[in-house]
Simulated scan of single mutants.
Amino acid sequence: MAFRNEEDKKAYWRENLALLAKLLVVWFIVSFGAGIIFVDILNEIQFFGFKLGFWFAQQGAIYVFVALIFVYMAKMNAMDKRYGVDEE
């Protein structure tokens, strides 16, 4: 389970950091943006009987965070296979 060369190692970490940055931006937008910044706008929309801004602040951000964990896992498994460092 080693990289073929130093260039693959650098490319792997570059892709990993890019993926992390994208997922953190999504997490920030959902948790901070939807739960705090845009809460007044989102509260005009009802979701399961709750104001959408309130729902994002209380539950929606957590659901998105859990979904991001699974997205990261799937993307990293694919990246590991592409670079030949998977565990299988």
Rank of each mutant, 00 (worst) to 15 (best):
A34W: 15
L52T: 11
F32I: 15
Q46W: 07
V85H: 00
E6M: 14
W27A: 00
V30H: 01
I41K: 14
V64S: 04
G84V: 03
Q58P: 00
K51S: 03
F50A: 11
Q46G: 06
I29A: 15
G84K: 01
Y83P: 04
V66I: 15
L20M: 12
Y63G: 12
S31Y: 05
Q46N: 13
K22N: 05
M73L: 10
Y12S: 00
V85W: 00
A78Q: 15
M79E: 11
F47Y: 12
F56P: 02
S31V: 03
L24C: 10
A61E: 13
Y83M: 05
D80T: 02
I62Y: 10
Y12D: 00
A74S: 04
F32Q: 15
I62K: 12
A57L: 01
E7K: 03
K81L: 03
F48R: 13
E44Y: 03
G53N: 08
K9A: 06
V30C: 04
L17S: 08
N77G: 02
K10Y: 09
V25D: 04
F3K: 01
A18Y: 02
G33R: 05
E44Q: 12
V26H: 06
G35K: 05
E88A: 14
Y12I: 01
L52H: 01
L52M: 09
E87Q: 05
V85P: 01
G60W: 13
E87T: 05
F50P: 06
G84Y: 02
K10M: 13
F38N: 02
K75N: 11
I41G: 11
W55Q: 08
R82Q: 10
Y12Q: 00
R14V: 01
A2Y: 03
A78K: 15
K10V: 06
I29C: 11
N16E: 07
E7L: 03
F65N: 11
M1V: 14
R4T: 15
N77A: 08
A2V: 09
